[in-house]
Deep mutational scan, measured.
Amino acid sequence: SEFQINEQVLASWSDSRFYPAKVTAVNKDGTYTVKFYDGVVQTVKHIHVKA
């Protein structure tokens, strides 16, 4: 599913667990740039983002 900029989502971290994050960019290659609550910004594949 498509997510929008500033949408609150759950994004997987390197430990494969999902954490609350905010979408900061929707990228043309189908990835999302997300910002976790601790301030870390990461680009993740769409399969690693869920509502």
Rank of each mutant, 00 (worst) to 15 (best):
S16M: 07
K28L: 11
T43G: 02
T31W: 08
H48G: 07
T31V: 02
D38C: 15
K45A: 12
F18N: 03
H48M: 14
T31H: 04
S12M: 15
V26S: 03
V23Y: 00
A21H: 02
F3P: 04
S16F: 05
V34P: 02
A11K: 02
D15I: 00
Y19T: 03
K28S: 14
Q4L: 10
S12I: 15
T33R: 04
A11M: 03
V34E: 05
V49P: 09
V9K: 02
V49I: 14
K50D: 09
F18T: 03
D38G: 07
I47L: 11
V41C: 08
E2W: 08
Y32F: 08
R17S: 12
S16G: 15
K45I: 10
K35D: 08
A11W: 00
F3S: 03
Q4P: 06
F3K: 03
H48P: 03
F18D: 04
Y37I: 11
V23P: 01
F18Q: 01
V26F: 04
A51P: 13
V23C: 02
D15N: 06
K45M: 11
N6H: 09
E7T: 08
D15S: 02
K35C: 10
K50C: 10
N6C: 12
Y37Q: 10
T33I: 09
F36I: 03
H48F: 13
L10M: 10
K35M: 15
V41S: 08
S16W: 04
V9W: 04
V40H: 14
V49Q: 07
A25Q: 08
A25F: 06
F36A: 01
W13D: 09
Q42N: 08
D38L: 06
V23K: 01
T31A: 03
S12V: 11
S12Q: 15
V23G: 01
L10V: 06
D29H: 01
D29V: 00
F18M: 08
H48S: 08
K45E: 10
H46T: 11
K45R: 10
Y19H: 06
I47K: 09
G30D: 05
V41K: 04
Y32E: 03
H48W: 10
Q8V: 15
Y37C: 14
Q42Y: 08
Y37R: 06
K45V: 09
R17I: 14
R17K: 13
I5V: 13
E7L: 07
D15A: 00
Q8C: 15
D29T: 00
F3Y: 09
K22P: 01
V23H: 00
L10N: 06
Y19E: 07
H48E: 10
T24M: 14
A51H: 12
S16D: 14
H46P: 15
G30Y: 04
K28A: 13
K22Q: 12
V40N: 12
D29G: 02
V44I: 09
H46V: 12
H46M: 12
E7V: 05
G39D: 08
F3R: 05
Y19G: 04
P20Y: 06
D15T: 01
V23A: 01
Y37V: 08
E2C: 15
A25T: 06
S16E: 12
T31D: 06
D15F: 01
F18H: 05
V23L: 03
L10S: 02
V26K: 07
S14V: 12
V23I: 15
T43R: 09
H46G: 15
D15Q: 00
Y19Q: 07
S1N: 12
Q8T: 13
R17A: 13
K28Q: 12
K28N: 13
E7D: 15
V9D: 02
V9G: 02
A51S: 11
K35Y: 09
I5Y: 05
Q4I: 07
W13I: 13
W13G: 14
V34L: 04
T43H: 07
K22W: 12
Y19L: 13
Y32A: 06
S14I: 14
V40M: 13
F3T: 06
K35R: 11
N27T: 04
D38P: 04
W13R: 15
V9F: 04
S1D: 10
A51N: 08
S12L: 15
V9S: 01
T24I: 15
Y19W: 10
Y37N: 11
V41I: 12
V34W: 00
T24K: 07
N27Y: 06
H48K: 13
S1R: 15
L10G: 02
F3G: 04
I47G: 12
V44D: 04
R17G: 13
A21R: 00
L10E: 07
S14G: 15
H46F: 10
T33L: 08
W13A: 13
K22F: 12
A51I: 09
V49A: 09
S16C: 14
Q4C: 10
Y32K: 05
V34K: 00
R17M: 14
P20C: 13
A11Q: 01
E7R: 00
T33Y: 06
V41N: 05
R17D: 13
V49M: 11
V9R: 02
H46D: 13
F36L: 02
Y19K: 09
E2R: 14
F36E: 02
S12W: 14
A25R: 08
V44S: 04
H46L: 12
N6Y: 09
Y19F: 11
S1H: 14
Q8R: 09
F18P: 01
S14K: 12
D15C: 09
F3V: 07
Q8W: 15
H46I: 12
T31C: 06
S14M: 13
V40E: 13
T33F: 05
I5W: 04
G39I: 07
V44A: 03
Q42F: 07
H48N: 14
H46K: 15
H46R: 15
K45F: 07
G39L: 06
A25D: 06
Y19A: 08
T33K: 05
G30T: 00
N6E: 07
V41Q: 06
H46W: 09
F36C: 08
R17C: 15
W13P: 09
Q4R: 09
E7A: 05
V49D: 05
S12F: 12
S12N: 06
K50W: 08
G30N: 04
F3C: 08
R17F: 12
V40G: 07
V41A: 03
A21N: 01
T24C: 13
E7W: 06
T31F: 05
K50S: 08
E7F: 07
S16L: 08
D15P: 05
A51D: 07
T33G: 05
K50A: 08
P20I: 09
K28I: 11
P20H: 03
H48Y: 13
F36P: 00
V34Y: 01
R17H: 14
T33N: 09
D29W: 00
V49W: 02
Q4F: 09
G30W: 05
D15M: 00
A11Y: 01
R17P: 12
E2I: 11
G30Q: 01
F36D: 01
E2Q: 13
Y32W: 05
I47D: 14
D15V: 00
K28Y: 09
N6W: 09
D15Y: 01
A25N: 07
K35I: 14
V49G: 07
T24Y: 02
V26C: 07
V49K: 15
I47T: 14
T31G: 05
S16P: 04
A11H: 03
S12A: 14
S12Y: 14
P20T: 02
V40Y: 10
A25Y: 05
I47W: 10
Q42W: 10
